[in-house]
Simulated assay, not measured.
Amino acid sequence: MSTTPHHLTRRAALIVATATASLVLAACGGGSDNSGSANEGHSNSSSASDTAGAHNAQDIAFAQGMIPHHQQAVQMAGLAADRASSAQVKALASRIEKAQDPEINTMTGWLKSWGKDVPSSDGSMSSMPGMDDSSGSGMANMPGMMGSAHMAELKKMSGKEFDTMFLTMMVEHHKGAVQMATTEKGKGKYGPATGMADGIISTQTAEITEMNKMLGKS
């Protein structure tokens, strides 16, 4: 009679121990799942808080300023096809056109989506500081922008004389673009705009070095 209770007691103890172990494992597993869910929820809420297309005044100023800046660079580059004597100058001009034309279209799209004014092809736009006349002369107030007299002079040139003036003007033009892009990178909020600014800094800084070498400068 005494062995039976002892046997039952041992079985009961074993069952309790097994159940306890199962509960501990379940608790550990549940904790892991809950932690993962919590982290996932935090990630989702963070993503939701990052408002798509959020921008600030600097982003608007960057697009409104860089559009006419790019337009002038493309205009200058377009002159090289039948005026430049250097194959290197022609190749550089072609790269500038191919890089900046799509960026003009992209920035135009941003401004339209934000309900903001888009500069006209001559750079005039009443709402832009320094752009309050229809002649576009206010563009010369922007970093690196060439005045109408310089542009007219470039159009009259050809051959090596054109090459030298084109490169000299484009170096200054690029420096202005880099300055504007640096401001955007530091103060802008719109991801695609700051990303474009970063690309402008990288590409045009390299092109400045390239053009200075063509001009015989270190």
Rank of each mutant, 00 (worst) to 15 (best):
A21P: 07
S22N: 02
L23I: 15
L23Q: 05
V24G: 08
V24C: 07
V24I: 15
L25C: 11
A27C: 10
A27Y: 14
C28Q: 11
C28F: 12
G29F: 04
G30M: 08
G30E: 09
G30H: 04
S32F: 11
S32D: 11
S32G: 12
N34H: 02
N34E: 03
N34S: 09
S35H: 08
G36W: 06
S37H: 10
S37N: 13
A38L: 10
N39M: 14
N39E: 14
E40Y: 13
E40W: 10
E40R: 12
E40H: 12
G41K: 09
H42C: 09
S43F: 13
N44A: 13
S45F: 10
S47G: 05
S47Q: 13
S47H: 11
A48R: 11
A48Q: 10
S49C: 06
S49F: 10
S49W: 09
S49I: 05
T51S: 11
A52Y: 12
G53C: 07
A54V: 01
A54H: 02
H55T: 08
H55C: 07
N56E: 09
A57E: 15
D59L: 07
D59M: 10
A61H: 03
F62H: 04
A63N: 04
Q64V: 08
Q64G: 08
G65H: 02
G65C: 00
M66Q: 00
M66N: 07
I67G: 07
I67T: 04
I67C: 01
P68V: 04
P68K: 02
Q71K: 12
Q71S: 12
Q71N: 11
Q72E: 14
Q72G: 02
A73C: 12
V74G: 04
Q75H: 08
Q75V: 05
M76C: 07
M76Y: 09
A77D: 03
A77G: 10
G78K: 02
L79H: 00
D82P: 01
R83I: 08
A84E: 00
S85P: 04
S86C: 03
S86H: 00
A87I: 07
Q88G: 01
Q88S: 06
K90A: 03
K90Q: 08
L92K: 04
L92H: 02
L92V: 11
L92Y: 04
A93L: 03
A93S: 06
S94I: 04
S94W: 02
R95I: 09
I96C: 08
E97G: 01
E97T: 13
K98L: 09
K98E: 15
Q100N: 10
I104P: 13
I104D: 05
N105C: 06
N105E: 15
T106A: 13
M107P: 07
M107L: 15
M107Q: 08
T108C: 01
W110C: 10
W110L: 06
L111W: 08
L111F: 11
S113T: 15
S113Y: 05
S113D: 14
K116F: 02
V118H: 04
S120G: 14
S120Q: 09
S121W: 02
